[in-house]
Design a protein around this nucleic acid. Structure first.
Lengths: 189, 189
DNA sequence: TAGCACATGTAAGTAGTTACATGATTGA
DNA sequence: TCAATCATGTAACTACTTACATGTGCTA
């Protein structure tokens, strides 16, 4: 049940509305967790009921009113105790990998199409993360920022997200190459 | 609902019992999917009922009897249609990343402990995958095997699994380094 | 004038986890 | 004799996904 902790972590550095948290989950938070808006709203309600976050109403004129949430002392304590327990390693669970596992029994063209789609997706996401990293660094060079920057947690998880997508991209490229080369070998014989 | 397809993919190259499939999910299949024994047995029952796999009873003397399953023509067709639909990209969902996201607000020692545990786990898993890759290649060198080997699907997914764990290992190492360096900087001032 | 961003959810269904059950054989 | 491996599940619970609901105001 780490969604609650992911929401808490997302709220640590700034006060956010439920809507903003869902936006964060679609963008930056995607580096370390993923959740749909419905889950986020439900979790925020639970966290508030348990006193781990507190919300305050903000009345707006041109837009619907909203509630801004922040992490309470109890919420921070909950995160501390979460971090002190062993993290369970996560596993890969990915459609595309299942498809490639079956590659020797499936149509090559179809697979290459999937891999090409995914290549483009990974490339785009990696570029997006790179931009976020540049923004977080500001003018600093990376080594300096990591040593003396105010908050490096989000930076480090974002870097993991970027490297994950880069690895996906490179893997897609390599697999396409292999499948094409094998097709030519088959055609020759 | 890709568990069914993961099970089908695992059964493509050899006839396996439910028990053996659960073992595969604990080891090699972990490269492209993850599931607990209960899920595997339930899924096999469903797949059999729908005619996507077929089982045959094998009577044993020294051990309990078992049922060996293989993929039927319909099962293969199901995999084909699965591969022809766009694969939904998966997302990172990992406790340790949540903990590092909150790093600036948590105790550094505790985090370094988590990262060190995970480093060792990733290292061990990467080594295991490397061994599996060597076994699959047999005597061949990699380029030759990828070009002319009989089945490259499992090899390619295993390589992704290995690279994923290597990336986890390297990230853990880098994060520990950053956290330690920052602690020293704080101590100086 | 149609669609998107803001803002917050409910309801129903599917998938995954945790806990438990059974019983034989083999190796330390 | 204690734990592990083989072999197969059931039951209860938690988490996640899909589909739907509501209403304003800004922008193309």
């Amino acid at each position: 049940m780490a969604l609650r902790h992911a929401v808490l972590a997302a709220l640590l550095d700034e006060e956010l509305s439920g809507y903003q948290v869902t936006k964060a989950f679609a963008a930056g938070v995607a580096n370390f967790w993923h959740a749909l808006p419905q889950q986020v709203y439900a979790e925020l309600a639970r966290l508030e009921k348990e006193g781990l976050v507190a919300g305050r109403e903000v009345v707006q004129e041109a837009r619907p009113n909203k509630r801004l949430f922040h992490v309470t002392g109890e919420g921070l304590a909950e995160l501390e105790s979460f971090a002190s327990a062993a993290a369970k390693p996560s596993f890969l669970r990915e459609d595309l990998l299942v498809q490639v596992q079956a590659a020797d029994h499936l149509d090559t063209d179809v697979l290459i199409e999937r891999l090409t789609e995914r290549f483009a997706f990974a490339e785009a996401k990696a570029a997006l993360f790179d931009e976020q990293l540049r923004t977080m660094r500001g003018g600093c060079d990376e080594a300096e920022f990591l040593l003396r920057g105010a908050r490096v947690g989000p930076y480090l998880t974002c870097r993991r997200g970027r490297d994950f997508e880069r690895a996906n991209r490179d893997w897609c490229r390599d697999v396409v190459e292999v499948l094409r080369a094998r097709r030519e070998v088959r055609a020759e014989s």
